[in-house]
């Protein structure tokens, strides 16, 4: 079942002054349970595509459907709600809330979803255990290593039970050991729990682990390879 569909998505920055075409007619379908990497050189449109799929940006032309719903037409407030309930984000710089503990960071999105305290407690503990941080729950981000912070970010991304997780260069700031650890966790969540991951990355280690690799060049899909699992 496809959960993400883009049709003829184009994105032009500065359309009235010096137009820059970041995406040129991207057609893409992502199925439930994929572990997909979007790769390409800098300026190829990876982050723009991820932002549009994630409802953070709107296409100049074309449309994006998530679970059959055209998100390009949603207003700002509905889009925020849509992101909260359907999409998990993992960012390059972890971006945890510095004044909240690891557990509170994971709980935060569930709080926005108005889940009960009992459910928040249970799920945040379960997710932090799943990413190997069951003994670090009460620590604040500044007390965690980069790799640990990114694992908290993955747990936070999954807390809302999203349809898929978008990860923008998730390993860019991590050392080899932390990268391998994080990839193991995400691969396991993908395999065992069917979580769909879409990465934008330059990192060969991520590309090697991906089961589908979409290469963007100059804002268009140059290749779309699926590996045998």
């Amino acid at each position: 079942m496809s959960i993400i569909t883009t049709k003829a998505v184009t994105k032009v920055y500065n359309p009235t002054t010096i137009p820059v075409e970041a995406l040129r007619g991207v057609d893409l379908t992502v199925e439930q349970g994929e572990f997909t990497a979007i790769v390409g050189p800098s300026g190829s449109g990876k982050t723009t595509l991820l932002n549009i799929i994630g409802g953070l940006d709107r296409p100049t032309d074309g449309y994006v459907e998530v679970n059959g719903k055209d998100i390009s037409k949603l207003n700002d407030n509905r889009l925020i709600d849509f992101r909260k309930d359907n999409i998990g984000f993992v960012f390059q710089a972890y971006n945890l809330i510095p004044v909240l503990t690891a557990k509170e960071n994971v709980e935060f999105v569930m709080l926005l979803q108005k889940r009960s305290k009992a459910e928040r407690d249970a799920r945040s503990e379960e997710l932090l255990t799943a990413v190997g941080l069951d003994d670090q729950m009460d620590r604040r981000p500044a007390q965690l290593s980069g790799g640990q912070q990114q694992r908290v970010a993955v747990a936070r991304a999954l807390a809302s039970k999203p349809s898929f997780v978008l990860a923008d260069e998730p390993t860019a700031n991590l050392d080899s050991k932390s990268t391998a650890n994080l990839l193991d966790i995400m691969a396991r969540l993908n395999k065992e729990e069917g979580v769909t991951f879409v990465f934008s990355t330059h990192d060969q280690r991520v590309i090697d682990r991906a089961r589908r690799v979409i290469t963007l060049v100059d804002g268009a899909i140059a290749s779309d390879e699926r590996k045998e699992s």
Partner: peptide, 8 residues
């Protein structure tokens, strides 16, 4: 915070 679903 806006990206992860917090309203303005």
């Amino acid at each position: 915070l806006l990206a992860i679903g917090m309203k303005r």
